[in-house]
């Protein structure tokens, strides 16, 4: 029994609709808290890991092992003055960080999480087309970034936004083609291949094994989506200062920062759901969420390691790569997936 149904049962004395509305509300709040905690943990992990790679110690002052460092940083960000530039376009400038953050939370709300012992399934959205919903939700975040870039009236920000658009256009087509391949493969086993839960549970062997090429294309695209190095041309700190978030400060900047770290977590979770079997694991099915988390953290660490060791790729090279290499490769992958699906179907 999942959390949502249990909450609905808890509110059952009220009418059916009210109970479900309250259940969704509470689970959403729960989710926001969960996402924040996960992000804080990820940022801490990342900083420690980065420090180790770079022969440093990392945060170790606030709390035990510096665990509360992020709290302190958050308080500092919240207490900071949020400076508004003079030439800004007011409304877009104010809502841009919110759009990024809402897009992130929405994407987390659509993902299936699997079971977690007595708590049950943490999944909120039960939709037949949740794959499409998910990709629609993660497409919201770049809108916030572009809005931020254009509304700041800063040349660095505009250049960053332009780079972001060029980047998005070049990797999203191969990304979606490799997802189509997945849906094709899943359709051999399940009647609802666009449902994320069905897509995950139909992976008797993870899709990443027959579709290594698709996994690679998708992972590269997801790193680019999270604008992590080497694909952080949009906010390349040595060239464009900070890209679209140049003019932001205080909590507004904090939202972009959370968006940056949250999207790498989201991306890794999506890769592990779609390609690595998600919450399917070798032993108890109760621990699905734990399996998912382990896979995700491993992927996040891989992305961090890549970030720490490679320089930034040039934007023209990346656009080249997207159209000349990723796109043909993903089409080849689609053909392979088709052949495999036919084979399974026979």
């Amino acid at each position: 029994m999942d959390v949502l149904t249990r909450l609905a049962h808890f509110f059952a004395p009220l009418t059916h609709y009210v109970a479900y509305i309250l259940a969704y509300l509470f689970e959403s709040i729960f989710l926001v808290i969960f996402v924040t905690i996960v992000l804080v943990f990820m940022i801490y992990l990342f900083r420690k890991y980065m420090a180790r790679v770079q022969l440093r110690i990392g945060p170790n002052r606030v709390g035990k092992f510096g665990l509360l460092q992020l709290m302190a940083d958050g308080l500092k960000l919240a207490g900071k003055e949020s400076i508004l530039p003079k030439g800004r376009d007011d409304l877009p400038f104010r809502i841009a960080p919110l759009i990024v953050f809402i897009g992130l939370v929405m994407s987390f709300a659509i993902l299936p999480y699997g079971d977690f012992y007595w708590i049950g399934s943490l999944t909120i959205t039960h939709s037949n087309v949740s794959v499409i919903l998910l990709f629609a939700a993660i497409a919201i975040m770049p809108i916030g970034e572009i809005l931020a870039g254009v509304s700041s009236r800063n040349k660095y920000a505009i250049l960053g936004a332009l780079r972001g658009v060029a980047k998005d256009v070049s990797f999203e087509v191969p990304m979606m083609i490799s997802v189509i391949a997945l849906v094709m493969m899943a359709s051999a086993r399940t009647s609802e291949p666009l449902n994320l839960s069905d897509l995950v549970s139909s992976q008797i062997i993870p899709f990443g094994i027959p579709e290594v090429i698709g996994l690679l294309v998708f992972f590269i695209s997801m790193i680019a989506r999270a604008s992590y190095s080497p694909f952080d041309m949009g906010e390349s700190d040595s060239e464009l200062v900070s890209g679209h978030s140049t003019e932001y400060s205080g909590m507004r900047f904090g939202m972009f920062y959370m968006g940056l770290f949250g999207s790498i977590f989201l991306s890794s979770m999506m890769v592990s759901l779609l390609y690595l079997g998600g919450y399917n694991g070798p032993f108890s099915s109760d621990a699905g969420f734990v399996y998912l988390l382990i896979k995700t953290v491993v992927l996040v660490l891989i992305a961090f390691t890549v970030w720490l060791s490679v320089p930034r790729i040039r934007i023209d090279r990346f656009v080249n790569m997207g159209w000349k290499y990723l796109l043909p490769i993903s089409i080849i992958n689609l053909i392979i997936a088709g052949i495999i699906t036919l084979g399974v179907g026979l």
Binding site: Q54, L55, S229, S238, W307, L308, V310, P311, R312
Partner: peptide, 16 residues
Amino acid sequence: FGLDLGMLSPFFYCFV
């Protein structure tokens, strides 16, 4: 120079 290109880690190796 590594930082200019977006490489974070070699900076620390050099400075050590």
